[in-house]
Amino acid sequence: MRRALLFLGIAGLAPLLFWGMRGLPPFGSYPGPYGFLLNQVAVAERHATDVVSAINFDYRGFDTLGEEFILFTSVAGAALLLRREKGEEETDDDAHDREPRRLPPPTSAAVRVFGVALVGLTVAFGLYMISHGAVSPGGGFQGGVILATAPLAVYLVAEARTFKRIAPKNLTEVGEASGAAGYVLVGLAGLVVGRTFLENVLPLGTAGEVDGAGTIEVLNVIVGIEIAAGFVVLLTAFIEETLRRRLRREQR
């Protein structure tokens, strides 16, 4: 019965799909004038050699503000849903977890060495990605996530205590909130100094240099902080349960 319904649906949808696909413009064709226009003027106007970044953080910076707040609210929502409730604290007992077979095997020296190398590389690559957003592909969003994987690598190879120490909850929460607020503040600076919200009011440098693109660079850094902190907040919320047990075990 289910299969019959499926085939009925496919039989109905397939002609519609083919009909629609026949009306598609040819592969690679682009109808609008804006892309061509921006490709010609963006580097001269904004000194950003990555036109995608110039569009995201300047020409349509207001949309990116919305995108940033989508992430902010979803992180806040997930943290709210996963918070520890008062009742949970008292009912749990970890006698079961103290059994020897439940203990995680200690991480080997090879894993630790690899982890240390990985963390250094990840942090460097994340910072590079964030700071070179206006110059080459990448930017605050991508670099922020890369940066956030560094504490995760630490959690995987080291003790839970180390994770707590390098990514304390207060710090990541403040980082996330100030990243979200910073974007709005840069926008307001445009309103105060210039004429419009998010106007690129900082002096432009040489095109192709990291500090050449004015507020695009500043916004990339702010978004990088917000995304990195937001992801670590999410990670902390998810692994808090495991973390608490491991911490208690380490203290013993």
Partner: peptide, 11 residues
């Protein structure tokens, strides 16, 4: 679309 590719990798 290298920018989109990067976003796709991380997300």
């Amino acid at each position: 679309a290298p920018d989109v590719a990067l976003s796709q990798i991380v997300v």
